[in-house]
Amino acid sequence: MLQKWRGQNQHVAQPLDHEKMIKELRVAIGPLTGHASKFCTDACLRRYLEARSWNLEKAKKMLEDTLEWRSNYKPHEIRWEQVEEEGKTGKVSRANFVDRFGRPVLIMRPGKQNTKTGEGNVRHLVYLIENAILNLPEGQEQMSWLIDFTGYSMNATNIQPKTARDIINVTQSHYPERLAIIVLYNPPKIFQALFKVISYFIDPKTYLKIKFVYPNDKESIEIMKSYFDTDNLPREFGGKANFNLNYDHEEFSKLMVEDDIKKAKFWESDNNDTNGHSETTS
């Protein structure tokens, strides 16, 4: 009787048909044109479904919110000349090395914060996120963030809690499944107070990707080895590479201007070539 009861009542979860759900989400959001059509690749729809645990209605709402945000904010139209002032100190830049899995790395240096404009900081970071996505290798969808706290102090020039919250909101809401890992490298104790405040706004899945790393700490060294090839990682982050990571604003600006041309060509290309199925962008 026990075996019969189990056979009648035990629920066995059936695996989700992800490809079918991607098609259902595409139908649910309806016909798209222009930028929205090119943005909504199958890979993009998959990321939104993953971010909402494959709940179709929640993924649809999240994607629709992003499409509205992109229509108004136009992140793909931001050019380096518009955010260059924010980047003069090198507070955020794309590294000249990748992580162990070939993903681009954004290096952030809160100690080099140079402006007090919250919106300027957000716009500058959005620009660099879009730039990192543009430079993703084929088959790769994520990037890594390496946040270096050298020179950090809780003074007026550092990012304020509201700006940090705005950054969290933009990245979580409009760039789902784009972050592989966030390394907080050598954060001072004074940062803990700010982190406690902003952690309330961090999605649980994103929170698990945040790693506190400290020099000469055995566990931290293993974390860095698992995500970075130490032969290519600069010495200042515990690696063996002996190249100069000093930020050169002139050289970085040249690189960004070149990428702006590449970005413009991509978004201005014939939308009919993609039919929403290209894997090359968001």
Results as ranks from 00 to 15, higher is better:
Tyr152Ala: 00
Glu141Ser: 12
Leu255Glu: 07
Tyr227Phe: 06
Trp80Tyr: 13
Trp69Leu: 11
Ile159Gly: 13
Asp229Leu: 02
Ala164Val: 12
Ser173Arg: 05
Ala241Glu: 01
Glu50Ala: 06
Asn155Thr: 12
Asp259Val: 10
Ile181Cys: 15
Pro161Cys: 13
Asp273Lys: 15
Trp69Ser: 03
Trp5His: 11
Leu2Gln: 10
Leu125Asp: 01
Phe201Ala: 11
Ser144Lys: 09
Lys60Asp: 04
Glu130Arg: 08
Asn246Leu: 08
Asn246Gln: 10
Thr33Phe: 01
Trp54Lys: 12
Ser269Lys: 04
Thr33Met: 04
Lys60Pro: 00
His174Leu: 03
Val83Ser: 07
Asn186Ile: 05
Ile210Lys: 06
Pro161Gln: 09
Asn158Cys: 04
Met224His: 00
Ile78Met: 02
Asp99Met: 14
Ile159Phe: 08
Leu194Ile: 15
Ile190Tyr: 03
Leu67His: 11
Asn135Glu: 08
Lys189Ser: 09
Leu179Asn: 12
Lys196Gly: 11
Pro176Met: 12
Trp145Met: 13
Tyr185Pro: 12
Lys162Thr: 09
Cys44Trp: 00
Ser253Gly: 14
Met108Thr: 14
Glu86Met: 10
Ser71Trp: 02
Asp166Pro: 02
Pro110Ile: 05
Pro137Val: 08
Val183Leu: 12
Arg79Met: 04
Met62Asn: 03
Leu184Pro: 03
Arg94Glu: 13
Gln10Pro: 04
Pro75Leu: 07
Asn232Gln: 08
His35Asp: 15
Ile107Tyr: 05
Gln8Tyr: 02
Lys58Arg: 10
Asp17Glu: 10
Leu56Pro: 00
Asn96Gly: 05
Thr150Arg: 09
Lys205Ala: 14
Trp145Ser: 06
Gln142Phe: 04
Gln140Trp: 02
Ile261His: 02
Ile29Asn: 05
Thr33Gly: 06
Tyr185Thr: 14
Lys240Asn: 07
Ile167Lys: 03
Asp270Cys: 05
Phe97Ser: 04
Gln3Asp: 12
Met108Gln: 13
Lys20Asp: 11
Tyr73Gln: 10
Val12Trp: 07
Ile198Phe: 02
Gly239Cys: 00
Trp5Gly: 06
Phe149Gly: 01
Ser282Leu: 13
Val122Phe: 07
Asn96Lys: 12
Pro161Gly: 03
Pro204Gln: 07
Glu81Val: 01
Arg123Phe: 00
Ala36Asn: 14
Asp42Gly: 08
His124Ala: 15
Lys61Gln: 12
Cys44Pro: 02
Ala156Asp: 13
Phe39Trp: 14
Glu177Asp: 00
Thr150His: 03
Gln172Leu: 14
Pro204Glu: 05
Glu86Ser: 09
Gln192Gly: 07
Ile167Leu: 14
Ser226Pro: 08
Cys44Ala: 15
Val98Pro: 05
Thr89Ile: 02
Asp273Arg: 09
Phe101Arg: 07
Glu130Gln: 10
Gly34Met: 13
Glu77Pro: 00
Val183Asp: 03
Gln140Tyr: 11
Ile198Val: 14
Asn244Cys: 02
Pro215Asp: 11
His35Lys: 13
Asn186Arg: 01
Met143His: 12
Ser93Ile: 13
Thr274Met: 11
Ser253Ile: 05
Gln10Ile: 09
Ile159His: 08
Leu179Asp: 06
Tyr207Arg: 14
Ser220Asp: 05
Pro15Gln: 04
Phe212Val: 10
Glu222Ser: 10
